[in-house]
């Protein structure tokens, strides 16, 4: 699909709308000129193809406070980011979700546009997302026991969410072909409370 949509007779790309929304505040945000957005497609939209006059920005870190639609994020290397969410922001936390699912203590990666006041107007935010190379050490009905490097991990199987891909095949909800000792890539959402992962997708290798 196209990520630009007609608005008031002129073409309005997603990033231009995003920055306009962030600058204009709640009134503009609340009256989304874009209407419904395809969240998965929006996540996949590459930022570099958009308006070069608006610098792209990226942030990584852990949320230390939230204030309305602004996330206060402490970066892993001492930096600080203020991330603005708008109606045009796509949010992932195990699945596509809304800002209400974001909590203090969560980790995130955010992509967006750098605003003149130093904040980042977020185009997409991935909350607690991890993508780790693991070895399967144990299999239970509702979880996989994993090792990642020298670290032991629990990967929770989430009903109606967790899928598997065997040797590059199509995604399936059937995890019955997982085997102890298999190497795998697990994409999921980290749980800050206990360090476990809710599995979105496990790709089984050779």
């Amino acid at each position: 699909m196209s990520h630009s949509q007609e608005s008031g007779g002129r073409r309005l790309d997603r990033r231009r709308f995003l920055t306009t929304a962030a600058v204009g505040g709640a009134t503009i945000v609340g009256a989304s000129a874009l209407g419904g957005l395809d969240a998965e497609a929006a996540f996949a939209e590459p930022m570099p193809s958009l308006d070069a006059a608006i610098p792209a920005a990226f942030a990584e870190g852990r949320i230390v406070a939230t204030n309305r639609n602004v996330l206060d994020v402490a970066g892993s290397h001492g930096e600080r980011h203020l991330i603005q969410l708008t109606n045009a922001t796509s949010i992932w936390k195990l699945r596509t979700t809304t800002a209400e699912a974001i909590e203090v203590g969560d980790g995130l990666y955010a992509r967006g546009a750098a605003m003149p006041d130093g904040t980042i107007a977020a185009d997409a935010v991935w909350v607690n997302i991890v993508n780790v190379y693991v070895t399967i050490r144990g299999i239970a009905r509702d979880r996989l026991h994993l090792t990642h490097g020298n670290e032991e991990l629990v990967g929770h199987i989430v009903p109606d969410t967790t899928t598997a891909s065997y040797l590059g095949g199509a995604l399936t909800a059937d995890l019955s072909r997982t085997r102890i000792g298999q190497e795998a890539q697990v994409l999921g959402a980290w749980r800050p409370a206990d360090g476990a992962i809710d599995i979105a997708r496990v790709s089984l290798g050779h």
Binding site: F43, A44, P48, F58, W126, Q185, A200
Partner: peptide, 14 residues
């Protein structure tokens, strides 16, 4: 890295 990957696509695609 996530910074590089998100410049050309979505992290959730993997």
């Amino acid at each position: 890295t996530p910074s590089a990957f998100t410049a050309i696509g979505s992290l959730s695609s993997g």
